[in-house]
């Protein structure tokens, strides 16, 4: 996808990391099943299907039934990892997820690939930009958006130990690897990537790399920016976010999602309840995408370091005006 220039460790798609990690965790855990709706290639489950054919379930292009099958497997003691494109999972089977999995709090893991606008050339029908809000709204559901391949692999391992339904959003395109293997991932914990007391950027997914670039640019202007990787949107790390509001006095959120109901919405909800400070949301502004390369789309739809920097300046203005 290219662009961010801060130190990174190469490029890798989060979906690639998912496929590899799932094969690894399934080796020692016969409860793990993988389900997909005719997307074993796109979801990176071909290696799993080859290694564990007895625990791989091809569900065909029928996402509603796939969720029911997963629920039936879960009540039979399995840990189903259900994958599809993020537009279909949850979009095509939301009521099934709600009634069969979220309400009874079943141990089903939803891992969607091709999340966000950077799915690219397939255009707006294929670009999931609202599903984080949908999944956040479900009680019992944990929602995770890993920033890179390293975090994705660690998240997959964490999912196995976590009892209950989880939604994980992954991407299609290769993205910068921002973490090294020493990175400690924990569900519900935001990671501090860059410290500063003038302003906080809370980002998730591909916007974490953009946030780090933005922080470098702001630093050149003497603005000390705190960067948080808020990969768990729900349950959100209240302590870390409220501390950021209190200590830095302004927050910019950045996500590859509509500005309604996702990370920006969640942070705004939290901050207004505990320590109100200006919040500027970087994301897709209540519209749909179109065909284009991932980078072109990020630029046209305002998902860049430059956009974060502009939002940071607005937030700082609002902060000093108070």
């Amino acid at each position: 996808m290219a662009a961010p220039t801060t130190t990174t460790h190469g490029m890798k798609a989060t979906r690639d990391a998912y496929g590899e990690a799932l094969v690894e965790v399934a080796r020692g855990d016969p409860r793990i099943y993988a389900l997909t709706g005719d997307l074993r290639d796109s979801n990176r489950l071909e290696a799993f299907a080859a290694a564990y054919s007895d625990r791989f379930v091809e569900c065909g292009i029928a996402e509603q039934n796939m969720i029911g099958v997963a629920a039936g497997l879960a009540v039979s003691g399995k840990i189903p990892f259900v994958s599809s494109f993020a537009v279909f999972l949850p979009g095509r089977c939301y009521d099934q997820i709600r009634v069969l999995v979220a309400q009874p709090n079943l141990n089903v893991k939803f891992v969607s690939t091709h999340g966000g606008i950077t799915v690219g050339e397939d255009g707006m029908s294929a670009q999931a930009i609202e599903e984080l809000a949908m999944m956040r709204a479900l009680a019992n559901m944990t929602v995770i958006v890993p920033a890179d391949a390293v975090e994705t692999a660690k998240a997959v391992r964490a999912l196995v130990d976590h009892r209950g339904p989880v939604y994980v959003r992954l991407g299609r395109a290769a993205v910068p690897v921002v973490f090294d293997d020493g990175y400690a991932f924990a569900i519900g914990k935001a990671a501090l990537l860059h410290d500063g007391g003038d302003l906080t950027i809370a980002a998730c997914g591909i916007m974490v790399a953009e946030a780090l670039v933005a922080a470098d640019v702001l630093a050149a202007d003497g603005i000390r920016t705190r960067v948080l990787n808020v990969s768990t949107l729900k349950p959100m790390d209240e302590e870390t976010l409220v501390a950021a509001a209190r200590e830095s006095g302004a927050i910019v959120t950045a996500e590859e999602h509509t500005i309604y109901g996702g990370l920006g919405g969640a942070v705004a909800e939290l901050v207004t309840a505990h320590h109100p400070v200006p919040v500027e949301r970087v994301g897709i502004r209540d519209c749909y995408g179109e065909s284009g390369s991932p980078r072109q789309l990020m630029e046209k739809y305002g998902l860049t370091a430059a956009e974060i920097i502009a939002a940071a300046r607005r937030a700082l203005m609002r902060k000093t005006r108070r």
Partner: peptide
């Protein structure tokens, strides 16, 4: 065995079992 109420769903869960 499984919560139902929205039509068409329990059948799929039975299939999973």
């Amino acid at each position: 065995e499984i919560s139902t109420g929205s039509l068409g769903m329990g059948f799929s869960a039975a299939i999973g079992m």
